[in-house]
Write a protein that binds this DNA or RNA. Structure first.
Lengths: 152, 152
DNA sequence: ATGACTGCAAACCTTTTGCATAGCG
DNA sequence: CGCTATGCAAAAGGTTTGCAGTCAT
C-alpha cells in the first residue's frame, strides 16, 4: 500500500475530499524525503510555488495537520522554532543526530535503546505511544573545522 | 559551589549586574525544582506575582535566557507550545517520561541508553554535546482511566 | 556618573481561524 | 446541490525588542 492510498483511504472514510492541493503537498513531501527529509511548512510552501503549483500558507498547514492525523507524517520540533514535518508512512522508527553547526540531520535506529525504553516505561507503569531521541552535537566535518580553529 | 555563586560569577565576569529581579527568578526556579521542576515563563511570572515580588514578563524571559547562557538552566520543548525551563546546575543528566493526558513528567536515567548513544555517535563520527530522550504516553493513572472508559 | 536593567507596550513570527468563494462528490 | 476546501487577511499565542526611566557599581 502506497502513501497515496493511505491518504485516499483516510479521506474517503472521513468524508473528506481529494484535491489537487492535497496531492501536491503529498508529492512535495515525498520529494523532500529524497533529500532533506525534515521540512518546514515554509519550505514546502516555497517549493510548491517554484514548481508552479502555488498554494496558500493556511492550506499547507491544514494539509500537514491532516497528514499527521492519518499517520502519514509526523511533526517534530528540533528547537529552532520551526516545526518540521517528516513522512513516516512505511518508514521504520528512527531517531536523530543533529549537527548544531551545519544543521545536518542523520537518522539512526538502535534496538537496544528501544528495549531499554520499554523497561523504563514498565518500571514507571507508563504506556508509551511514541518517543523522541535526539543527539545534538557536531558532525564529522564540523568537528574538524572546529578543531582547526583551536590549534594554536 | 552553589547555583547562586555560579550566577554571580557569570554576572561579574560579564560586567553584568546583580539585581533583585534576577535573584528572585533564581529563587523561584529553585523552589519550582522541589515540585514541578519543569516550569514555563508564565508559571514563574505568576509565582512571583503571588509571592509579592512582581516582575515584568520581558524580564522573566530575559533572565531565563541569561540563566541558559551560563548553563544554570536549560530550555525544553515538550510539544505543547510552551517553553519550559529547568535548573540544570549540579543536577545529573536525565530524560523524561511525559504523560500526554495529565502532563505529569517523570525523570529517569539509564546508563545503558547513554552508552548506546555514544556508540551511535561514534559510528557517525559525531561529537555529541547534549541529547534529549522523551517518551510520550499515559502514566499509570491515566492508563487506568482510559481502560475503564473502553469497557463498554 | 555610566552603563546595565526593568517595565510597558509594541513588534515579531509561526501557526491558526473566520469568512466568502471555489470545487469535489 | 450540499458540504468541504481554499485563499486571504486577520487573529492568536508565545517570545523578543525598543524606549524611557531606574538602579547597581
Amino acid at each position: 500500500m502506497k502513501a497515496e492510498d493511505l491518504l485516499q483511504g483516510h479521506i474517503v472514510s472521513h468524508h473528506l475530499k481529494i484535491t489537487k492541493e492535497r496531492n501536491a503537498v503529498l508529492r512535495a513531501l515525498i520529494d523532500a524525503t529524497e533529500t532533506e527529509r525534515h521540512v518546514t511548512a515554509e519550505e514546502l510552501y516555497q517549493k510548491m510555488k517554484k514548481k508552479g503549483s502555488p498554494i496558500g500558507f493556511a492550506t499547507v498547514y491544514r494539509t500537514l495537520n491532516l497528514f499527521c492525523e492519518c499517520k502519514l507524517a509526523e511533526q517534530r520540533q528540533f528547537g529552532d522554532g520551526h516545526a518540521r514535518y517528516e513522512l513516516t508512512y512505511n518508514v521504520g522508527h528512527h531517531d536523530h543526530l543533529i549537527c548544531t553547526e551545519c544543521h545536518k540531520i542523520i537518522e539512526f535506529e538502535n534496538l537496544l535503546i528501544e528495549q531499554q525504553q520499554d523497561k523504563v516505561a514498565k518500571k514507571h507503569h507508563f504506556t508509551v505511544y511514541s518517543h523522541k531521541l535526539e543527539l545534538y552535537g557536531l558532525c564529522s566535518e564540523c568537528s574538524k573545522i572546529q578543531n582547526k580553529g583551536k590549534k594554536r
